[in-house]
């Protein structure tokens, strides 16, 4: 009997209601490392709400999120990140007045050991850690093809590269699960293709689990191994891309009956 892979991220009966509105209910998903899962659904179906639940922005009214089998109930957003859940945003949220490399270095903050005294008096430890961090940040920028833009202000990057910088910053948190919220939104086909290559490299070289929200169906069908579809906060289908494409419920949700 083959040993079943243990999921990195798992949810059990996750749900949240705002007042009387059940935005998401009974959401179950499990992702193993190295897996790329797509989360799709019509507008307003609750996809981003699911992301907010998975990253601790919203506190679920029912159910739990488990990371490597450990429940993350009651933790704050930055503790979710420390545990290993990183995300990007649907509408880009970069640190505009900081340089590209600083944007990535912010994500290292929680891993830096030096304290106030080291910073104030510039101890050797400070220089050692800063140098190591610069090197690591440059490696991550290289993966996303931004190494020659390191000292440019983040706000002056073109749109596609801002998206990539967000991914680089998420990678810098040293996560086990990466949540990408519409990474290809507003991109032209060339940029989308580049992004696709970037995502594939990340998955192969980091061996992490990726959960992807996306409206670009060709992208979803191409890269995702499994797809979960939600509508009105309820999971209506999940399975392989080919199955999903032919599922009558999904077609009905997208096109109407």
């Amino acid at each position: 009997m083959s040993e079943e892979k243990k999921p990195v991220l798992e949810t059990r009966g996750l749900g949240i209601s705002f007042g009387g509105l059940h935005a998401v209910s009974d959401f179950n998903i499990s992702i193993c490392s190295g897996e790329l899962v797509g989360l799709i659904g019509p507008n307003g179906a609750g996809k981003t709400t699911v992301f907010n639940l998975l990253t601790g922005v919203y506190v679920p009214t029912e159910g739990t999120v488990l990371l490597n089998g450990v429940p993350l109930n009651g933790k704050k957003v930055h503790q979710f990140v420390a545990a290993g859940v990183a995300r990007t945003f649907q509408n880009i949220r970069l640190f505009d007045d900081m340089t590209v490399i600083e944007n990535v270095k912010v994500a290292f903050t929680k891993d830096i050991k030096y304290g106030l005294v080291d910073a104030f008096f510039r101890t050797p430890r400070f220089w050692r850690e800063e140098e190591a961090m610069t090197k690591k940040a440059m490696e991550l920028l290289a993966i996303c093809g931004l190494e020659d833009k390191a000292d440019v202000l983040a706000s002056s990057l073109p749109y596609g590269q801002q998206r990539k910088l967000e991914i680089a910053r998420a990678l810098a948190t040293d996560m086990k699960v990466l949540l990408l919220d519409e990474p290809a939104a507003g991109m032209n086909p060339t940029e989308t293709a580049e992004l696709l290559a970037c995502i594939n490299t990340i998955r192969d070289s980091f061996g992490i689990a990726i959960l992807l929200i996306e409206h670009d169906m060709s992208l979803v069908m191409n890269v995702c191994e499994r797809i979960q579809v939600i509508d009105y906060g309820v999971t209506i289908a999940s399975g392989l891309p080919e199955e999903i494409a032919q599922n009558p419920k999904v077609i009905a949700a997208y096109l109407g009956e």
Partner: peptide, 29 residues
């Protein structure tokens, strides 16, 4: 100057620029 040109400076400038993103990058806001 030493304070703002260290991880502390980076963290607090990130909070100024975008608090939500800062928290999602693991900064204890």
């Amino acid at each position: 100057f030493m304070f703002v040109r260290s991880k502390y400076g980076r963290a607090i400038r990130s909070i100024r620029d975008n608090e939500i993103a800062s928290e999602s990058s693991g900064v204890n806001v």
